[in-house]
Amino acid sequence: MDNKLYNLVTKEEKCYGCGNCVVACPVNAYNDPAVAGGKGPEQLDKVIMCVENGVIKILNMGLCKGCGTCIEECPDGAIGLEVNYTT
């Protein structure tokens, strides 16, 4: 885990793999034009998360600034933010 205030946590058993979070995420959309248009990410090193094997997978936690957009777009709570108060 990166040494950050916010950490993304995922619950794979709850995930539908719909990709709402992947597409809604402003960082993903900014870094990968394919994601901005709704497609799956093409540059995997530039996006925070992608859907792998039908469930959400965090790829680059370091890019996340903790805006929380992805959480709002998940109806099932499969993705969430964890606050790391110790740092």
Binding site: C15, Y16, G17, C18, G19, K39, P41, C50, N53, G54
Partner: peptide
């Protein structure tokens, strides 16, 4: 394995 496909598609 698959990537980008939803749970059903996978």
């Amino acid at each position: 394995g698959t990537r980008n496909l939803c749970r059903i598609g996978h």
